[in-house]
Computed example of a mutant assay.
Amino acid sequence: MSYFVFPGTEPTVVILHGLAGSGREFEPTARALAGRRVILIDQRGHGHSTRTPPDTSRAAYVGDVVRVIETESTGPVDIVGQSMGAHTAMLVAASHPNMVRRLVLLECDAGSGTPEERAALGAFFRSWKVPFPDRDAATSSLGGGPLARAWAADLEQRADGFYPRFDPDVMVATITDVAEPRWAEWAEVTAPALVIYAEHGMFTTQQQADFVARGTNVTRVDLSAGSHDAHLDAFDIWIIALSSFIDSR
């Protein structure tokens, strides 16, 4: 497991990235939470953590986060996640309620998706024209937007070019487990939870409403802009929503 600690005061904020991302894309968020201790975790199969872990179950992801919290924090943490990372954060809060003070979920549901969607995602990752000659070429090839820039910034440089820090098959295996609905676990979360959806996010109005309604002690915020990766393309309003919630008493 690889993770980076920004020094500051507790309670610690633990941030979990989405599928095919890494902690690096949340560095601006960590810096914006000036004064708070922040831990950015590269979840298994991502970033600088083990590239091809033998276990991609939800339990394995949760266990990794729990071990980091046990090692690095002296008390309950505020745990923040986006997409797959939000799903992991939700399960941590459900299974270890004494570890979590507040929970923030950006673009999350209890678990959804079809085999066809997962196959298409795997095909997309395998279509990347690696190695990329440089980060600018990677950004252009991947669409040129904020997410493409985040992916390009995180590429691994090797002698013959730049490669992603994840394996497509591991990503498909991971998202397959994320797709299994975890309604019982979501209902068990007792920590105050903030659920954030972006204007152009990936979930339907009905999915959003169902998820919020079936939680306990949930506050919902709808961002007036942004995509599924609103921490990248709606940064200012993301930070306002996040900091207002975790700084409240």
Rank of each mutant, 00 (worst) to 15 (best):
R67M: 07
R67G: 12
R67W: 07
V68N: 09
V68W: 13
E70L: 12
T71P: 01
S73Q: 00
S73K: 01
T74W: 08
T74E: 15
G75P: 11
G75L: 02
V77N: 00
D78S: 13
D78K: 08
D78I: 07
I79C: 11
V80A: 07
G81L: 03
G81P: 00
M84F: 14
M84P: 05
T88H: 12
A89F: 03
A89N: 05
A89V: 03
A89P: 03
A89H: 00
M90W: 07
A93K: 03
A93Q: 08
S95E: 15
P97V: 11
N98P: 04
N98Y: 09
M99D: 12
V100K: 00
R101G: 10
R102P: 13
L103P: 01
V104K: 01
L105E: 01
L105N: 08
L106Q: 15
E107P: 14
C108H: 15
C108Q: 15
C108S: 14
D109T: 15
D109E: 15
A110I: 14
A110Y: 12
S112A: 14
G113L: 04
G113S: 08
P115Q: 09
P115S: 10
P115V: 09
E117K: 15
A119T: 10
A119D: 14
A120Q: 15
A120C: 05
L121I: 12
G122P: 04
G122Y: 05
G122W: 04
F125D: 09
F125P: 06
R126N: 10
S127C: 06
S127D: 10
W128P: 02
W128M: 13
K129H: 12
F132H: 00
P133Y: 05
D134C: 11
R135Q: 14
D136S: 08
D136R: 09
A137P: 05
A138D: 00
A138S: 01
A138H: 01
S140Q: 11
S141C: 06
L142A: 09
L142V: 04
L142E: 07
P146H: 14
L147Q: 07
L147M: 10
L147I: 14
A148C: 13
A148P: 08
R149Y: 01
W151K: 10
W151S: 08
W151D: 08
A152V: 02
A153L: 03
A153M: 05
D154A: 15
E156F: 08
E156P: 02
Q157I: 05
R158N: 08
R158Q: 10
R158K: 13
R158T: 07
G161S: 04
G161M: 01
G161V: 00
G161R: 01
F162D: 01
Y163M: 06
Y163L: 07
P164S: 11
D167Q: 06
